[in-house]
Amino acid sequence: MLSEAVKRDIEALRGRYPVAQSALIPALLRVQEEQGWVSPEAMAEVGRLLGLPVEVVAEVASFYTLIFTEPPGRHVVQLCTNVSCMLSGAEAVRERVERALGIRAGQTTPDGRVTLLAVECLAACDQAPCMIVDQQRHGPLSPEEAARLVEELD
């Protein structure tokens, strides 16, 4: 069930566009801000609010990597592994962070604390190797600094 606040926001988003479907992606992100992910039920509900078949909501949601259709951990760590970061040591950072969390990129810690994602260029190559923790960007990072950052997450 979506909260009233989310429903209101989706209604407002809808008003920004001449066609309701344009509000779909912002709406799904809004749901995710509150619930951490977009569940099948939420997809159906967003579809109802925007007058879209759930099939359409699902196909769109599945296309975008930052719409989570499975629940992630409480914190999401996006570690850039693209070329500029790789040249600056992203592989070592990744290994160290994986060790610190005890998981591989693409996984969530068993306690549901952190999901680690290896991602493409974050357009922050001036801070390579860099990483986004939830909504905060960090970099350049040594493996140790990166490990400390993820260890500090509650």
Partner: peptide, 26 residues
């Protein structure tokens, strides 16, 4: 209006971007 993307490099291609802005797969 500011419209957020949701994780897709191809959405930078102009027509894919418009698809995405219209609420579809980019």
């Amino acid at each position: 209006y500011v419209h957020p993307g949701a994780g897709a490099y191809i959405a930078g291609e102009e027509t894919a971007l418009l698809e995405s802005l219209e609420g579809r797969r980019a």
